[in-house]
Design a protein around this nucleic acid. Structure first.
Lengths: 217, 217
DNA sequence: CTCGACTTTTGTGTATACACAAGCAATAAT
DNA sequence: ATTATTGCTTGTGTATACACAAAAGTCGAG
C-alpha cells in the first residue's frame, strides 16, 4: 500500500538519522534506483521529500547530498528547538492533566532504569519517548508535529552526546526537574527547565566539535 | 535557469497564498501540466514541494488539493506563530541593535502611513515587512526562516482580517508597543506584546468564521 | 424506482527514453 | 611547461508511455 517513494524516503531518512549516511554524502539517483530496485522516478520523489524536511540539500543540476549545516546553523536549530520545547513544557504545566503526569512519570522511570544500567541505547529510546510525551502534552497537535520534525532533523547531531555517561545522568536529573515543575503547575519553571535542558545540548554539541576539530568552520 | 518545477511551484504558491486557489481546490496533474505547457513530471515535483511546505495535501492515490485545515488546526498554527514571533521579539530586545531600531521604525512609519489612508493593501505589505524585520532581528537565521515559512502558511487565513479598518488601527498600535518595548530593551514586554499581537489574529479568525458560519467544523 | 454489480473513465504511480548542463580528461597551441 | 579548447562521461531535468487503483457512470434485477 505504501508507495515506493514513501518506502525509499523512510529508509533514507532512517539511514541519515542513524548516521549510516553521514552529512555530506552524495546521493546519486541512478545508484539509489539500482539499490532499491526501482526507477529514478520514485527516488527523485523521495529526495524531494527529504529535501523538504531539511535532511538533504538539493542543488539544481548539481545533485543532492546529505545536509551538512555549519556549526552556527546547528546551534541556531538547537536554540529554536529549545524554545519550541519550552513552550510545550509551559503548556503541559498549564494543563495540569493527571493522565499526562502519569505518562511523564512512566517515561521518567524508563529513563532512570536505562541510566542506572548505563544503557545508552535504551536511554536514547526512553528519552525520545519522554520528549514526545511533552510535545503531545502541549495539547497543540500542530506544535507537537513541528517539534517532532525538528527533533528528527537534529538527531544526527545529538547522537554522540549520550555516549558520555555523565551527560546521561545529568540529563536524567534535568528530566526530573521538568516533571516536578509540570506537576506543580509551575509553568514558568517548567518552561525554563525545558529550555535549559535543550540549550545545553547545543552547547555540548559545539564543545564536542571544537574538541575534535571537525572540518567545519 | 530556474527549472520548470521551481517556476510552477512558485506560481502555485502565489495563487494559493493570494486566494486564487482557495482551500479545498483539487489540483489535478494533467490539467496543471497542460496549463503550464509542460509534462506531468515537473508538475509532480512542484506539488511535492508545496506539500512539504504545508500548502497542499497529497493523499496517496487520491490526488492533491489545497490544504483545508480545520478551524482548530488553524488556531493551533496561530498559537505556534505567536510563540515563534514572541521569541523573535525577545531576541530583538536583547540584542538592542540601533540599526534594527531604525529598521523597525521605518516599517512602523510605512504601516502608519498606510493606516492613515486606510489602504489595506499597502498596510498588508508594510505589515509583512515589519514582521520580517523582527524575524531577521532575532539574529537567528534558522528561526527567521521558520517564522517566514509559517507566516506564509497562515497568509491564506489572515487575508480577510485587515479589511476591517478598526483592526488595522489596532494592529498599528500594537506594532508601536512592540517597537517601544524592543527599543527599551524590555525583553519580557516585547515578547508579551508580540505574542498578544499574533494571538489576537487567531481569535479574530475564529470569530470571523463563527460569524459567517463557514462549512468547517 | 432503487439498489447493486459491472464497465468505463479518470487520474495517480512508476518505468523508460531523451535532452542537456557540469565536471573531467586529453590534446593542441603558445 | 602551461593553459585553453574540445570531446567525453556522468548525472540531473523533462517527456512520454504504461500499469493500476479509485471514482463515475451504466445497466439490469428486484
Amino acid at each position: 500500500m505504501a508507495s515506493a517513494a514513501d518506502d525509499i524516503s523512510e529508509r533514507l531518512e532512517a539511514e541519515i538519522v542513524e548516521g549510516v549516511l553521514p552529512p555530506g554524502t552524495r546521493l546519486e539517483e541512478p545508484a539509489l534506483a539500482e539499490r532499491f530496485g526501482v526507477s529514478r522516478t520514485p527516488v527523485r520523489e523521495a529526495l524531494q521529500r527529504l529535501s523538504a524536511s531539511g535532511l538533504v540539500e538539493l542543488k539544481p543540476r548539481r545533485g543532492t547530498q546529505v545536509l551538512n549545516p555549519s556549526i552556527g546553523r546547528i546551534v541556531e536549530m538547537f536554540e529554536v528547538m529549545a524554545e519550541l520545547e519550552a513552550v510545550c513544557a509551559r503548556l503541559c504545566a498549564r494543563r495540569g492533566d493527571p493522565d499526562l503526569f502519569a505518562d511523564l512519570r512512566g517515561w521518567l522511570a524508563r529513563c532512570a532504569a536505562a541510566a542506572d544500567t548505563g544503557d545508552a541505547s535504551a536511554y536514547y529510546t526512553a528519552n525520545k519517548g519522554f520528549h514526545s510525551a511533552i510535545y503531545r502534552g502541549s495539547g497543540n497537535l500542530f506544535l507537537s508535529q513541528q517539534a517532532e520534525l525538528l527533533h528528527l532533523r537534529l538527531t544526527p547531531f545529538r547522537r554522540q552526546q549520550l555516549r558520555l555517561p555523565r551527560r546521561l545522568r545529568q540529563s536524567l536529573a534535568e528530566h526530573g526537574r521538568i516533571v516536578a515543575a509540570i506537576e506543580a503547575g509551575d509553568a514558568a519553571a517548567a518552561e525554563a527547565a525545558q529550555r535549559a535542558h535543550i540549550l545545553i545540548q547545543g552547547e555540548r554539541f559545539a564543545d564536542l566539535l571544537a574538541q575534535h576539530g571537525s572540518g567545519r568552520e
